[in-house]
């Protein structure tokens, strides 16, 4: 297999990313209030990138549609937890169907529900979408995103339309988010090393691999797509409880591009890649933001023109694809082997 990939359980493959996730969260969370918020958003993005890894990374089939599942998860969670009086009286929600107003559940129940609902929708749409390959799959998933966005953006009976649903309760404890992210990571890891997970990865390299193993490529892809739908829904739900508000625009093209960039820059064929990509793009974005605002970065004052941050990130992404289209980690899992190689050289 070209991309390293998974074969069997390996403690370092699992603990490496877990350690980085925990350490990075610990240090950034304590640094400052603004960094704490950045960290919380980054944890949401990481779960979203994990969702993409399960499907896009393992199968090699492109999906622009996962924003739909994140949007849905965010919507369900926001709608079920926003205070009744807000839903009943906010101007943005004056056309809301009345049965939606009194609905109210605990924040964690809402998260679980949004993950399940997004997963179910992914499974249902997957039955149709997973019959497609390559470019057709890319465009069909794009169409799915388009439909979801178009409906939620315009329909004011189901939600706030183009406006915001305010006063969604927030999770302020970063470690709860970390716990969710870590649990997601462990689940994805065990899925990836399972028989089904390995089969999907094999189909990435060779579409004939699944039939050769006696498994239907449609079935394994559908399973991966559904699981990634669950995770995307969870990511959306986390996001809404960090942002404290639900807004359709948050899950459209920029969101899709950002999360796909994270996955691909890191290396889409591994969890390690998903994490490295998320950390890197969040980190670089934050450093550039500080430069734009003329704040010191590691004690250095480097100022860049306002607005150039987005250009630099996008250029880096394209350059990354030109330099190494399989990502920084080359799609490999975390391993201490490189340390051995280093010590041999010295």
């Amino acid at each position: 297999m070209k991309h390293g990939g998974y074969t069997k359980f390996s403690l370092q493959n699992l603990l490496g990313p877990l350690a980085l996730l925990t350490v990075a969260t610990y240090f950034l969370n304590g640094a400052s209030t603004s960094l704490q918020l950045i960290t919380q958003f980054a944890l949401c993005y990481f779960v979203m990138v994990l969702a993409l890894q399960v499907f896009v990374g393992n199968s090699g089939v492109l999906s622009f549609g996962h924003g739909s599942f994140a949007l849905l998860g965010s919507y369900v969670s926001g709608m079920l937890t926003a205070p009744v009086h807000i839903k009943g009286h906010a101007l943005a929600l004056n056309q809301l169907w009345s049965f939606l107003v009194p609905l109210q559940v605990n924040i964690y129940v809402a998260m679980a529900l949004s993950a399940l609902i997004s997963g179910a929708v992914a499974a249902l749409t997957g039955i149709l979408l997973m019959r497609l390959n390559g470019l057709a799959a890319g465009i069909a998933t794009f169409a799915l995103l388009g439909v979801t966005y178009n409906i939620f953006f315009n329909n004011k009976q189901i939600g706030p339309g183009s406006q915001a649903l305010p006063a969604v309760p927030t999770i302020t404890n970063t470690y709860i988010l970390l716990l969710i992210a870590a649990l997601s990571l462990v689940c994805v890891y065990f899925f990836n090393i399972s028989r089904i997970g390995r089969t999907i990865l094999a189909t990435r390299e060779d579409a004939m691999a699944a039939p050769a193993l006696g498994v239907s490529i449609f079935k394994v892809r559908l399973i991966a797509f559904s699981i990634s739908g669950v995770l995307a829904g969870l990511a959306g739900s986390m996001y809404v409880h960090v942002a404290g508000t639900f807004q359709v625009q948050d899950y459209y093209l920029d969101f899709t591009f950002m999360t796909l960039s994270m996955l691909i820059v890191g290396g889409s064929a591994s969890i390690w890649g998903a994490l490295v990509g998320t950390v890197l793009i969040t980190g670089v974005g934050q450093i550039l933001l500080m430069m734009e605002q003329n704040l010191p970065v590691f004690g250095l004052h480097i100022t860049i023109p306002l607005g150039s941050r987005a250009v630099i990130i996008a250029v880096t992404f394209v350059a990354m694809l030109l330099w190494r289209s399989s990502g920084i980690t080359n799609g490999r899992e975390f391993s201490l082997d490189f340390l051995k190689k280093l010590s041999k050289k010295n």
Binding site: G60, L62, L135, G307, V311, S325
Partner: peptide
Amino acid sequence: GVNPAIMLIASFGLSTVLQRVYEL
């Protein structure tokens, strides 16, 4: 010659690059 999915993503990226450049 690379995977068409990668090319599609790259063109998505290039599109973003140009939008930001125009904005500048």
